[in-house]
Design a protein around this nucleic acid. Structure first.
Length: 422
RNA sequence: GGUGAGGUGGAUGAGUGGCUGAAAUCAACGGUUUGCUAAACCGUCGUACGUCCUUAAAGAUGUACCGAGGGUUCGAAUCCCUCCCUCACCGCCA
């Protein structure tokens, strides 16, 4: 959520940058500012009247103490009059504040000035690429055939148990999940990230904090009886660890990592690109999150990108890093790098990580602040990235590493997996 | 699910209708003292939204906030209602 004061002071810039993100309702900015004006006027009126009520009430107390009952009764009348004039003001104020809040929640984050213009994924910029594309045998199979051949993921039974898009991993397939999770977590903690295992359901306040609500309401599984949401990523519970906290400046950066299953309804995204592990409703992911000093967030973003790149390199998969254009960025992000791996049998790039700087967009909602050296309150910046999401890594790994003698497990993973191949 | 006890500032904790935005202690910060550390002493020490003043910082001032939301009252941390959460015990249970 953007800060009203910032919008007030940078109106034209805000509009311009929202346009970069292809945000259609730029007029909301003017609406916000006029509502904020009204809010301030009402607040002032309310405060002044309330101040009179308070001081008069104090006088009444003193008069009562002196036994001047009649004077006190007169003052009571005064207060009653004041209060009746107060009611409509506070009613109106509540409406304006609520409306202002609702509209503010609709505004996406501003893209940073480093964001390239563009509308579709085709406008994203390839920053760099690495790894080597394998040359596969003529009879190479896509991963949805490989998982059957080796009997490691059973979609049909997953669908029987729950529904489509809920894979049932089996045998070495299950162990590969466990090995990847363990390996990723170890890799992250070695880089100074503290490991967490968070709740997999969150309440409403938490879902608002990271921006899932109200923007992505329909994308989360919802438990009506308890008003909980299944997490779409561990970013949600992990970033909220520090909600409503004032952290010490010297404790920044705060670096956290967590494994969790991720639940996504993926409403409206059926059709192509959903075969096999390419798009599922439940998947495993290891996430990294940082809360940092605002001056450092863009350096940290690069650091996180390098971290993920290093991890991908150890898996020896062909990858590329994209800087997302304005039109392809998520609601809450100011700058995002996507990582894609090349799935050789599908001849297709698959997204396996998204590393973003949210600046103060999330922390303003969550009120995660620190007191700077001048004693002023400032919002910290939040960043996160996948390190890494499993299904597409597995898809790519199966396809690219298939041989006549089975599927080769990358060296870095072998000690976790306990074998050199499937 | 049941019963009981609770939720007050960074922490402990006092506070049962006006003198309480909140005692006291600890922590933290600044200073004095000091060979260093420690101790002692002095001072500062919540957040948000406004207003005034100012180039700004600082300062002054108003309002709100003692789990959340309502209510009673001239006046609520304090009384009443609803909800949430924590702890203990019981029940159920991986």
């Amino acid at each position: 959520m953007l800060q009203v004061a910032f919008i007030r002071n940078n109106k034209e810039e805000v509009k311009e940058r929202l346009t970069v993100k292809n945000f259609a309702e730029v007029d909301l900015v003017d609406e916000i500012l006029s509502m904020d004006e009204e809010r301030k006027k009402l607040q002032q009126e309310f405060d002044n009247t309330q101040a009179k009520v308070n001081s008069t009430s104090k006088e009444i107390g003193q008069l009562m103490a002196k036994g001047q009952k009649e004077n006190a009764e007169n003052k009571k009348q005064d207060v009653a009059t004041l209060k009746s004039s107060l009611q409509p003001i506070s009613d109106r104020l509540a409406i304006v504040e609520k409306h202002l809040q609702d509209v503010l929640l609709k505004l996406p984050n501003l893209p940073s000035d480093k964001v390239p213009p563009g509308k579709t994924p085709a406008d994203n910029i390839v920053v760099r690429a690495g790894g080597n594309e394998p040359t596969l045998a003529a009879n190479a199979l896509p991963h949805w055939d490989l998982i059957k051949k080796y009997d490691i993921v059973d979609f049909e039974t997953g669908a029987k148990i729950t529904g489509s898009g809920f894979p049932l991993y089996k045998g070495k397939g299950a162990k590969l999940q466990r090995a990847l999770i363990q390996y990723f977590l170890d890799f992250n903690t070695a880089a100074g990230y503290t490991e967490y295992l968070p709740p997999f359901m969150v309440n409403e306040a938490t879902a608002y904090g990271t921006g899932q609500l109200p923007d992505k309401e329909g994308q989360m599984y919802y438990m009506q009886a308890d008003n909980f949401y299944m997490i779409p990523t561990s970013e949600v519970p992990v970033t909220n660890i520090y909600r409503d906290e004032i952290v010490k400046e010297e404790n920044l950066p705060i670096k956290m990592t967590a494994y969790s299953p991720c639940f996504r309804r993926e409403a409206g995204s059926f059709g192509k690109d959903v075969r096999g592990l390419n798009r599922v409703h439940q998947f495993e992911k290891v996430e990294i999150v940082q809360l940092v000093h605002p001056e450092k967030s863009y350096d940290v973003l690069e650091e996180m990108v390098n971290h993920v790149e290093k991890l991908l390199n150890t898996l020896a998969l062909p990858y590329r890093i994209l800087k997302l254009c304005g039109g392809d960025m998520s609601f809450a992000s100011a700058l995002t790098y996507d990582f894609e791996v090349f799935s050789a049998a599908q001849q297709k790039w698959l997204e396996v990580s998204s590393v973003s700087n949210f600046e103060t967009f999330q922390t303003n909602r969550m009120k995660i602040r620190f007191k700077d050296s001048n004693g002023k309150m400032q919002l910290v910046h939040s960043l996160n990235g996948s390190s890494l999401a499993l299904p597409r890594i597995v898809a790519c790994l199966l396809e690219n590493n298939q041989t006549a003698n089975g599927i080769k497990i990358p060296l870095a993973l072998q000690s976790y997996f306990g074998a050199e191949s499937i």
